[in-house]
């Protein structure tokens, strides 16, 4: 009986040992593994970040390489340092002598080490807009062994993003905004360029507005050029200008955030292509008044060409300013 029991236990332990010792991606004394570090929507001009871990049991590592399915934009590179955390502080150690990118291939030459992790940052190029991009990582050691691993495909958004644009609500300030250009203009610039047809909304600030006899709260507001009843006292649009009517759906920070536009990596809530495609503007107004920090507005341009999500990073009463960020999708 004892013998049988010992046999069963022995068998069980051996099975456990073999199962637990199963090694992934180990090839010729080399192991490699990647971690996809990006949680945000992938937008042209932004980065896709990886950590690439390598280990050799057959001598020191030699080179790390990654080939992207679409060549990255300027700035695509392996870091030459490896990161670790000591008492909550990020510490780095140099582990590569060189890091180069040529076309779709990025390469790092490693210093005398048997195991390390390198970060790879891929800057999303214009060519990848709306496309899937994947990466083939590989590592060699000085004994000539090679190991590689390929990522799944990652879909790049079609939308654009611009952050931290300051709007100034004074007469000479940059308060005329073009969603097509993702830029704020002054009145002089609009006149000089004859671009009033490109102006989708105007930023205005006043504590109150008095449409007839009673004063009501107004605050920081984004108003279509056509919404003449919603500008503060003394504000007029030049008569010769095109007065676009931009559809607007006001939102508020406690119901909708965007971690990328807010610049806060701890907020893993994002507006993506789908949100802009699905946003309905049936019965929408053409103004959004009393906006505050973290407020936001979905907008659709008068010609229907763009849908945008405008996020209010910060408003300042004293300086008559608002800092906004936006994501924008071209519909046709």
């Amino acid at each position: 009986m004892k013998k049988i029991l010992s046999l069963i236990i022995g068998l069980f332990l051996s099975a456990t040992f073999f199962v637990s010792c199963k090694k992934e991606a180990k090839q010729n004394g080399l192991s490699n593994q990647f971690i996809y570090r990006t949680t945000e929507p992938l937008i042209v001009g932004q980065s896709i970040d990886f950590a690439y871990g390598m280990g050799s049991t057959n001598g020191p590592l030699n080179t790390a390489q990654v080939i992207a399915s679409i060549p990255g934009a300027t700035g695509t590179l392996f870091e030459t340092v490896t990161h670790r955390t000591v008492n909550a502080a990020d510490m780095t150690t140099v582990v590569a002598t060189s890091s180069t990118t040529s076309g779709a291939t990025s390469k790092a030459t490693l210093i005398d080490t048997n195991a390390t992790t390198l970060r790879y940052s891929y800057i999303i190029p214009e060519e990848a807009r709306g496309q899937e991009v994947s990466f083939n990582f590989s590592v060699t050691n000085k004994a000539g062994d090679e190991a590689s691993t390929t990522t799944p495909g990652y879909k790049v958004s079609k939308m654009d993003m611009a952050r931290n644009i300051t709007l100034e609500g004074t007469a000479s300030g940059a308060r005329y905004f073009s969603i097509a250009d993702m830029k704020a203009y002054t009145q002089a610039e609009v006149d000089a360029g004859n671009i009033s047809s490109k102006i989708d909304f105007i930023y205005a600030y006043a504590p109150t507005i008095t449409p007839t006899t009673t004063a009501y709260t107004y605050g920081h507001s984004l108003v279509s050029p056509a919404a003449s009843g919603y500008f503060p006292a003394g504000f007029t649009i030049p008569s010769g200008w095109t007065k676009n009517s931009t559809l607007m759906e006001k939102k508020i920070g406690n119901t909708l955030y965007d971690g990328q536009l807010k610049g806060d990596p701890n907020i893993s809530i994002y507006v993506d292509d789908l949100d802009l495609q699905k946003q309905s503007f049936d019965g929408s107004a053409n103004y959004a008044i009393t906006l505050a920090n973290d407020g936001s507005v979905f907008m659709k341009t008068a010609d229907g060409k763009y849908t945008a999500f405008i996020y209010v990073n910060k408003v300042t009463n004293a300086s008559n300013t608002a800092v906004i960020s936006l994501k924008r999708l071209q519909n046709f």
């Binding site: 009501y216 709260t217 019965g283 929408s284 107004a285 103004y287």
Partner: peptide
Amino acid sequence: AKFGTNITK
């Protein structure tokens, strides 16, 4: 409703 309300929606 407050001033500025889009009462159609």
